[in-house]
């Protein structure tokens, strides 16, 4: 643990370099993950629909996403004439940044090299992921497009509503482990009674996974970009690399949310025989697969049903779960 001492020391040139290097490596890593998450999504959904998915670019279509991203990057950067130009330009960046920043607290493996073992990891994640909403609403507003506006408004309502049950279901885990530090939460799952929190917190996990799907704007909660209603929702007017930013943010969140679920409920890097990072990768992939699987199956829920489901069902249940956990933890 010698090399993490810079976390606690005052800032110096060397620690800054370390941090910058770490951030760049994580960024490179996450870009690779997103590239192949998209590839994986297209393949999995393709297989589920009797298709073969991308198979043209490179062997087995492995370079398909890279080609797509390159195409997006060299496209003309179109800004609609009636758009609020400054807002329109910065909105995708605002949406993307928090998605990347939340990765700072995700413990990828036991020797979490570039992970800040922050004492408020859970709060940090929730707080930052909420920032993305601003980027989305801003993008919808600045486009000066009715579809985009409705998409942006929908996503604001949706993300705010689902942030609450998401946070409350996570708090139950925090209660159990007695820490907000994601690393300590993983380590707490090693202690007695040697079970991942999915077992005692199964109820909370269901709430978490529903809210997480909604938070990620994925089917069946993909209303903000509901294609059949709103064309493309808040990014209707976006193209080129700004569009890529939104997509990137979306898929980074898929990864981040899967990583969070793994950490909170499935013991993070814990697991027998295999190295920690591999366990982590397997668990995260399983979550990502689950999101894609749901996407291939479910129709889309309706806006009003979505909101009333959150406020009338999920939040009371999450509260109940939280109180029950607290009571049990006090008694035991």
């Amino acid at each position: 643990m010698e090399m993490f001492t810079w976390l606690d020391k005052p800032m110096s040139g060397m620690t800054f370099l370390n941090m910058a290097l770490g951030a760049v490596i994580v960024l490179g890593f996450i870009l690779g993950v997103v590239t192949y998450t998209i590839y994986f999504e297209r393949k999995v959904i393709g297989w589920m629909q009797w298709r073969i998915g991308p198979n043209r670019v490179g062997p087995l279509g492995l370079f398909q996403t890279i080609a797509d991203v390159l195409k997006l990057l060299i496209k003309e950067d179109i800004v609609p004439a009636k758009a609020d130009r400054t807002m329109f330009l910065i909105a995708p960046i605002i949406a993307f940044f928090p998605s990347f920043m939340v990765l700072a607290v995700i413990p990828f493996s036991a020797t979490h090299i570039f992970t800040a073992a922050s004492n408020v990891g859970v709060i940090y994640y929730i707080a930052l992921s909420a920032l993305t909403i601003i980027g989305v609403v801003l993008g919808g507003w600045a486009s000066n497009n009715k579809y985009a506006l409705i998409g942006g408004m929908r996503s604001a309502a949706q993300m705010i509503s689902y942030e609450v049950p998401l946070a409350m279901s996570l708090l139950a885990v925090v209660l159990m482990s007695g820490s907000m530090n994601l690393v300590e939460i993983v380590e707490a799952q090693k202690n007695f009674p040697y079970v991942w929190y999915i077992v005692p917190q199964f109820f909370g996990f269901i709430i978490f996974i529903i809210s997480a799907t909604a938070e990620l704007n994925r089917t069946p909660f993909d209303l903000p970009e509901a294609e059949s209603e709103l064309v493309a929702g808040y990014f209707t007017e976006y193209s080129g690399f700004r569009f890529a930013f939104y997509m990137l943010a979306e898929y980074v969140y898929v990864f981040a949310m899967s990583a969070l679920a793994t950490t909170m409920y499935f013991g993070g890097w814990e697991g027998p025989f295999l190295p920690g990072w591999l366990w982590f990768a397997i668990k995260v992939s399983a979550f990502i697969f689950f999101f894609f699987w749901v996407r291939a199956t479910m129709p889309r829920i309706r806006t009003d049903q979505l909101l009333s489901f959150s406020w009338k069902v999920l939040i009371p249940l999450a509260l109940l779960n939280l109180v029950a956990t607290a009571v049990v933890m006090t008694l035991v």
Binding site: W47, M48, Q49, R51, A296, T297
Partner: peptide, 20 residues
């Protein structure tokens, strides 16, 4: 009921690919 649907789509993973 949606669990049944999930089961159906999962089964289709092994279905013969029909792409021409």
């Amino acid at each position: 009921g949606f669990l049944k649907g999930l089961k159906v789509t999962f089964k289709q993973l092994a279905h013969k690919k029909i792409t021409l």
